[in-house]
Structure formats: structure tokens, C-alpha cells
Amino acid sequence: MSNELKVKTMQEFMAEGRQPEILFWVGSAGSYDDRAKKITRAFVRILNKANVDFAVLGTEESCTGDVAKRAGNEFLFQMQAMMNIEVLNGYEIKRIVTCDPHSFNTLKNEYPSLGGNYEVLHHTQFIKELIDSNRLSLQAKTYKEKRITFHDPCYLGRANKIYEAPRDILKQTDARIIEMKHHKSTALCCGAGGAQMFKEPEKGDMDVNVLRTKDALETAPNIIATGCPYCNTMMTDGIKAHEKEAEVQVMDIAEIIANSENL
């Protein structure tokens, strides 16, 4: 991360004898993928701006096991999950925020049966909380009159029924929010879920991301907003397939808000 960002690890908090307000679960994409790292930095800028006392696990964070589970390797999933739960419980973590709906769904819904019980929030929920409590105030009108359409990530929307938080945040930017034909509970998948992110489509299968991007482009957007690093990758590839890179941006909501505040 760049030098201007203020980030502490749980080990540093423990050395100071205190607990953070939240643990920021960075996730595999946010840690290693160059594009997703920009989302991570944007969210940290928001946390810094709102004076949120947060920590990361750093090198102690491992994959949640989501991909292993979706690919059918339950044994590997449980191994990965138990390692993470041991670390989280050792630090007595209570509240976790993540930018990745896949991590969000796994930590929230699948860790409790293995002994990992935490309050887990998606970053759009937490950003909305910061705005509603006046800890974060959007002053700049960077996106005034821009046309933004929001793509609902499967694990955020249909899997966990979180539809309004991202839209409520986008409305704060003074942009024109235009819904796709398929949105909220009827939204199409970007094609990355179920471990499909890491493989090519089977012969004869359609490129789902190209189909979903077509749905988005029909709204004539300036920006396709996402709330998932994997959706971001798939929609960006879809934009390239439609040769619209010069006209349409794909941005995470954290990036939109960070840019609105000129953080």
C-alpha cells in the first residue's frame, strides 16, 4: 500500500493492548490482483477519512476457502476455514468488513457452523453506515449528471438480499442511477461465481460476462458500478469484448466514493 494510507495489523493492536472497531478482511483478490488492489486502497482511504479504527490480519490472513468449496473440495474448504477461525478467535474478532461478496458470504453464512461467529458486513453496508452516522460526508460533486448503472453481485444480492445499501450510496453522488433490465433479484451473473473465475467456459457455453455487459450497456452508462472485485474483472473484460473501453468505466463503489471525496 502507498505511504499515505494508515493501516495497522492485529498484531500491532494487540501490542497496544486494544481492539479495533472493525477487522478489514482484504481477501485474495484485494491482496494479490493488481486491479483489485486499487479497490482495497480506495476503501482504506475512506476508512482513514472517516477516522475508523481498523485493523487487517496481514500475512495471517488466508483464503476463506470459498473457491475450494464451490469447486467441490469440502475437505480443503474446512482446512482453510479452520485455520482462519483459529486466528480470528484468537484475536477475539467481533466485527468484520470486506469488499468481496464471496468472502462476505463465506464468513457470514458458512463459518458459524465451524465455530466462527462474527458480525460480517459488506463494504457498501459499512460505507452507508458511515454516511448515515455523519462520519463520512460527501461534499464533491464529481459524478453530477453522470449515468451510473449498478451490477448486483450474486453473493451480495440474491444470496444475501443486500440490494439497497449500494444504491443508497450511489444516490449520494448526485449521479443519475439507471437500472438495467435485469437488476436486484433478477440480475444476471457476471460469470465469475462458482469458481468459474479461474477457468475458461466449456466448449459451447456462452461468455456470460459479455451477455451481462450487454445488459449494462443498454442503459448507456458512463460508469458500470460494482461491489465485487471478481465482477469488476468480468465486466471489464465484457467492456473490452464490446469495444467500449473509451466510453465506459467499470468502478467499484469504494472507488466512486473515494473519488467523490478526492481522498
Rank of each mutant, 00 (worst) to 15 (best):
T64S: 12
C154K: 09
A29P: 11
E255Y: 04
F150A: 01
R70F: 13
L57E: 03
K244S: 08
L88P: 00
A68Q: 15
D174M: 08
I127A: 07
L138F: 04
R167P: 00
Q249N: 07
V26E: 10
H242R: 00
R70D: 14
G204Y: 05
H151G: 06
E4D: 14
R158H: 11
D207T: 04
E179D: 11
G227Y: 05
T59N: 13
G191I: 01
Y32A: 15
D33M: 09
S137W: 15
Y32V: 08
L138M: 05
G191T: 01
V56H: 01
N134R: 08
V7W: 12
T142F: 02
E60W: 02
D100Y: 03
E164W: 14
K37N: 14
V56A: 08
I96S: 01
A159M: 12
T59V: 13
D34A: 08
G116M: 02
N209I: 00
P201K: 12
T213G: 04
L188E: 06
L76H: 10
K199T: 15
E245L: 10
A216L: 06
E145C: 15
I131P: 10
K69E: 08
V26L: 06
K244W: 00
K181Y: 06
H151R: 04
T226N: 02
I169V: 15
G65V: 06
G204K: 11
